[in-house]
Amino acid sequence: MAEATKTAEATKTDFEPNIVAFLCNWCSYAGADLAGTSRIQYPPNVRVIRVMCSGRVNPLFIMNALQQGADGVLISGCHPGDCHYMQGNYFARRRFNLMRNFLEYVGIEPERVRMSWVSASEGAKWKGVIEEVVEGIKSVGPMDSFKRRQLNW
């Protein structure tokens, strides 16, 4: 029994999660770009999808990413008050707050869905965010509760 839990623990930490990150065009995407051009090393588990604003991110995006095999989702936008469209990130924040509580309620680990504010000059913060997200997802293991079944005909 103890050995079985040990192996389970080992697979949990060994596995490399796939993370879908929705980054806003004006801040977070530029922040991630800065991290790259500054040669900052951060875990390579993130697949970036650029959106024009964090307010563009529909909660259905999160569900769809998790269904299609992402182990976690990160939404990142400008700091409050810095939104290129003035208010988009405020709407996103409110929406995400409810979504996050709800996913926790139905038994999906809140570590899987995260939100962050990363501005265009915060390349170093981006690295920290990614490290924290990856660590969180590694601690909860692969997403298998409602991943879409792949049919091989």
Partner: peptide
């Protein structure tokens, strides 16, 4: 709508 003072302690 939104409020500037909405909770954000869950945001990194």
């Amino acid at each position: 709508t939104f409020s500037v003072d909405d909770r954000e302690d869950f945001i990194l």
